[in-house]
């Protein structure tokens, strides 16, 4: 998969691998300077994790024909967003007295988790209904309303 290769590269670049293969548009110097064994992580590292999860979720939603796969993509997307909320709410990660979201970030993440649970419940019920009616969970078969 194309995006997995790229994300692997970028993530590895944050650790050690060479900057030569990276396009110049990424100012990755601070990431390359990051020594994981002695230096503390910052917000940017959480953001990268969030971005990878978000992208994986979007691709999952677009690619999977299984209704459950689409649901899993949604969970990944919401989770990726949550990581960013947590990262920006943590005074530990921002450091140096930089402004944080404080507790508000965590509260929003909490609501996201709750609503994701609610969403999953309804979506699973719909999937179950779809399966009862069509004997499959392939969403490409949901074309009854097609003219």
């Amino acid at each position: 998969m194309g995006e997995s290769i790229l994300s692997g590269t970028v993530f590895a670049a944050g650790i050690s691998v060479g900057p030569a293969i990276l396009p110049g548009i990424f100012p990755l110097a601070p990431l390359l300077a990051f020594n994981p064994f002695t230096e503390p992580v910052g917000v940017i590292h959480y953001m990268i994790v969030g971005a990878v999860m978000f992208t994986a979720g979007v691709v999952c939603m677009a690619l999977k024909r299984n209704a459950l796969g689409v649901l899993m993509g949604i969970e990944l997307v919401l989770n990726g967003a949550n990581i960013n909320f947590i990262a920006f709410s943590s005074p530990y990660l921002r450091g140096d007295g930089a402004p944080t979201l404080g507790l508000d970030g965590q509260l929003i993440a909490l609501f996201v988790i709750l609503l994701a649970a609610a969403e999953a419940a309804v979506a699973l019920a719909i999937t179950l209904n779809f399966y009862n009616n069509h004997a499959t969970v392939d969403i490409d078969r949901a074309d009854d309303l097609k003219g």
Partner: peptide, 21 residues
Amino acid sequence: LLAVLLAAAVSVDAWRKPGVG
């Protein structure tokens, strides 16, 4: 999408500081 997200993420200097809070 990943490229756009990463570019956006690393484009803000304040986010690139290591955390020492």
